[in-house]
């Protein structure tokens, strides 16, 4: 045992490889150790604390007083009877149903256009489209708040100029519209990212296939709908998962743009969790909401990971 320990600990330092053994079998052990140390730390700070959060949601804690006496699922029942929880959940679902297809659709369109445009100015356009995604949500949300301003915002100014005063829209002040305003702005921010992902996917399609299709007389439209887009499936799937996770945990953009308003019309689960925990000092309920959110995200991510690892094994 001692000899083994010596070998493991000092080998990488003295770089002496005993005859008959190759470097890689030894080199991997110290690497494994480093990996394991970070794994153990990560396990504590990520999974340990997730576990603690789940535990908290089942305890009799109140406000800032932490108790480890179990209370059952009271906090989860509370979510069932909290009308704002239902609105938040509905809004998260709206995000999933509108924001994800919107971002993927627009991203696909942009990617195809960028591909058609070819190398001419591609870098320039790529930068332009990716720029929104590189900005902080707080900044873009503040910008959209100005643009959506009812009286002076650029959006209503344009609408007035094109269609007349009657077409002014109260983007953030009307509870029936505010959520769509949020979704529109988010699609703007994410479509550059999806476009870039899809563009990379298009580039990875072998040139020979495209040439073959061309020789067979495929039109540009057929080329994209029959050859290119079907091959983007894994790329679309990975973008879908990223967007899905975002749609579930969306917080900062909405916090700045509407703070859940008007009324509670644009609340989402993450915002509700933040308000209940930190503004109403109801930490166990906040923990329960966090657990619900976590379960939702996990149920999206895990199947994807399984699917993609199975794909790789094939």
């Amino acid at each position: 045992m001692e000899a083994l320990l010596n070998e493991i600990i000092f080998l990488p330092i003295i770089h002496k490889v005993p005859p008959g053994r190759n470097m890689s079998s030894y080199g991997s052990i110290p690497l494994t150790i480093i990996l394991m140390v970070s794994l153990v730390t990560a396990f504590f700070f990520i999974y340990g604390l997730i576990g603690w959060n789940v535990l908290l949601s089942f305890t009799k804690s109140m406000g800032l007083i932490t108790s480890y006496e179990l209370a059952g699922s009271i906090q989860y029942m509370k979510a069932g009877s909290d009308p704002v929880f239902q609105i938040s959940l509905k809004n998260n679902l709206m995000l999933i149903m509108l924001f994800i297809p919107g971002s993927i659709g627009l991203g696909l369109l942009l990617a195809v256009l960028l591909d058609i445009a070819g190398s001419k100015g591609e870098t320039l356009y790529r930068t332009i489209y990716l720029l929104p995604f590189s900005l902080s949500f707080v900044i873009t949300a503040s910008m959209w708040a100005w643009m959506y301003n009812y009286s002076y915002g650029v959006v209503n100014t344009l609408l007035t100029a094109l269609l007349g005063r009657a077409f002014q829209i109260n983007w953030l002040g009307d509870p029936n519209i505010a959520l769509y305003s949020v979704i529109l702005a988010l699609i703007w921010q994410f479509s550059g990212y999806t476009a870039l992902v899809f563009l990379a996917g298009i580039k990875s399609i072998p040139e020979s296939q495209i040439n073959a299709a061309r020789i067979d007389g495929a039109s540009a439209f057929q080329l994209y709908t029959k050859i290119v887009i079907p091959q983007l499936k894994p790329w679309i799937l990975s973008a879908f998962v990223v967007l899905m996770v975002f749609a579930l945990k969306a917080f900062d953009f909405i916090y700045v743009l509407t703070n859940g308003g008007p009324g509670v019309s644009t609340y989402v689960l993450a915002l509700l969790m933040f308000r209940r925990a930190f503004f109403e000092t109801d930490f166990p309920y906040g923990a329960a909401l966090a657990t619900i959110l976590f379960t939702m995200v996990i149920s999206v991510v895990v199947p994807y990971l399984l699917l993609s690892s199975r794909g790789r094994e094939k």
Binding site: V84, D174, P175, G261, P262, G263, F279, E280
Partner: peptide
């Protein structure tokens, strides 16, 4: 109480639009 104050914000904001 904080809980009322937080709800009061939401109620006022909802009333301003509906």
């Amino acid at each position: 109480p904080e809980k009322f104050a937080s709800a009061f914000n939401d109620i006022s904001s909802a009333f301003a639009s509906n």
